[in-house]
């Protein structure tokens, strides 16, 4: 991997983290922990892997992205705005009266392919998209990001059976494996392990990476095994980038106080300064 590319992605992701904290603090609502854990993956997809020109042109052979863990929407909106899908000033309307920037993605927002928010829907919808594109001979690829707590939904596993049945090698499912859901550690709520083996047993090409490390993410996201969909078990840190939020289930859906907000922004700015030095 080109170190300059990685460095540039790290800077971008740090800026989007600042956007996330700002949006949630000002709206006084949001899902900060999961947004911070998954924003690196979304950064890799939107700033390196996917062809945004085709997406903006709504080309039939465009890549398609589905945020199945719809609650991690703040980073998604911040990226879409930064990539020019809608004006960046609109981010300040997030979760406000009559906004189109709902707390879960809706297709009213330019760049959002599919409304999500109820868990367990993204993978089956992505399977349908990949199947449609496969049958049309489209060159596009479908990426879907799921939560790890979401893996308890039965519909995920219905789709996990369908992906390999239809040999959807144009489909990549990513599990944001931050190990925490709203009630605590995933293994205490509903055991997911051995998660990679479970996907392997269902017939997926499985890659295990650190999802906060671009040098591991980029090769995994650009992997394609003929005849098989790819599942990326992407190990991440919930609340990544803000020291006092990291690895705490409490930050799943908590809004920082004024003091915490300034502390978070200071930390992220310091990190950004270090990166851009």
């Amino acid at each position: 991997m080109d170190n300059n590319i990685i460095h540039s992605l790290e800077i971008t992701a740090c800026r989007r983290r600042i956007d996330i904290v700002n949006m949630i603090y000002h709206a006084k609502t949001g899902h900060i922990g999961g947004s911070l854990s998954s924003v690196d993956l979304l950064t890799a997809l939107y700033y390196h892997v996917m062809d945004l020109e085709k997406i903006k042109a709504k080309s039939p052979d465009r890549d398609r992205f589905v945020l199945s863990k719809g609650h991690s929407v703040e980073g998604f909106y911040a990226i879409l705005a930064d990539c020019g899908f809608f004006p960046k000033e609109e981010l300040s309307t997030y979760a406000q009266f009559h906004t189109r920037l709902a707390c879960h993605p809706t297709s009213k927002v330019p760049g959002v392919e599919v409304c999500t928010g109820s868990l367990g829907h993204g993978l089956p919808v992505a399977v349908g998209m990949a199947l449609g594109m496969q049958r049309d001979g489209s060159g596009g690829h479908v990426y879907v990001v799921m939560g790890d707590g979401e893996q308890a939904e039965g519909s995920v596993w219905e789709a996990a059976m369908a992906g390999p049945t239809y040999h959807l090698d144009n489909l990549t499912a990513i599990v944001d494996r931050n190990h925490l859901q709203i009630s605590g550690n995933t293994e205490n709520v509903m055991c997911l392990e051995p998660l990679a083996d479970r996907y392997r047993a269902f017939g997926w090409n499985v890659v295990e990476i650190c999802g906060n490390d671009f040098s591991q993410m980029i090769p995994a996201l650009t992997t394609q095994v003929p005849g098989k969909p790819t599942a990326i078990i992407s190990d991440t840190i919930k609340g990544k980038g803000v020291s006092f939020m990291e690895n705490l289930a409490a930050w799943h859906h908590k809004v920082p106080t004024e003091e915490q907000y300034h502390q978070a922004i200071d930390e992220l700015n310091a990190h950004l300064q270090q990166l851009t030095k």
């Binding site: 039939p60 599919v114 829907h121 089956p124 919808v125 399977v127 449609g132 519909s155 219905e158 789709a159």
Partner: peptide, 21 residues
């Protein structure tokens, strides 16, 4: 498209197919 005995999957997959035209 045969989805097997999986009604939830069948409806979501149908939506995905529709999103590709």
């Amino acid at each position: 498209v045969e989805m097997g005995i999986a009604e939830q999957d069948a409806v979501s997959v149908s939506a995905g197919l529709a999103l590709t035209g």
